[in-house]
Amino acid sequence: MTARSFRLPRIPVWIWYMLPGLLVYTAFMAVPLFKSLQLSLYTGSGFQIDTFVGFDNYRRLLTEGEVSQRFWGAFGHTWVFFAVHMIVQNSLGLLFALLLSSEAIKGRALYRTIIFIPATLAIVVTGFLWKLLLNPQWGAVNLMLEAVGLGAFAQPWLGIEGVSLVVISLVSSWQWVGIPTMIFLSALQAISGDLFEAADIDGASSWTTFSRIKLPLIWPMMGVVAILTFTNNFNAFDVVFAMAGANGPPNYSSDILGTYFYRVGIAGEHPVGIPDMGLGAAVASIIFVVLFVGVLVMRTVFQSDGTDD
């Protein structure tokens, strides 16, 4: 057989264009992700994670003493953290978008620019800044409350169990509200003006216009915003780390999955201080599964209910 009759299948030239990006993306994103799922079935010490233990890490997380107490605490807090964003951040975003979409409002560009500023700040900077503002000794927040005669409401905001997590979530909502605002705004601006004119002629009230025209048309965008909020918050870490610290004080009440993952898998849980990477990988895998299932559920909800017919 000569070389002539034996023809290699020709590799399309396009492969070479894709290859460099694919390699980096695969090696440093896809593989680590997959390997981390796999590592959750192993245990060991330090970087030597090679003893197969099946689902033992998961058993520990879900049922074993203090480990599971911390895990379920963080799990629950993450939902609270997410819920505050869904309710406060996204409602404000929708409200701002509705107000800004009206052409009669002067200074729209200025408002828009201001609302979006915090989204360009580093999360750590936002966190530290608000930590200073909420500080009970100097904190501007308490001073302002006093200035307007509400001094009785002054609190050590980040020192009270149950309050601190909500305050941190509100600060994070303050930072990110610009994103849903802009997404809703671009959806609203894409709605044809004819529709509003027709509604106007028919004498529709502004509530009718909102609920019958705007809401159905921006419903798919609500799905986008909900999914975005969900993925960002189940993955959050920086804001709690900056405002409260890696332990989610007081008494772990602001501990979320991100900080728990950091402590268990990377920094080492107090007082031992040695990371348990297998256990950490199990936490990461649970975050992954929750994200995956959550996104699927939200997609179906926002796709199927989008229209009346």
Binding site: L33, S36, I266, A281, A284
Partner: peptide
């Protein structure tokens, strides 16, 4: 225009939904 390029495109897009932090433990080892 081919199935390969569509698959590659979707493979990249999948990364938009999945935070890379989840892979941190293995990235540390790498």
């Amino acid at each position: 225009k081919s199935r390969v390029s569509t698959a590659v495109f979707l493979f990249f897009l999948a990364g938009m939904m999945i935070p890379i932090r989840i892979g941190s433990i293995n990235l540390l080892m790498i």
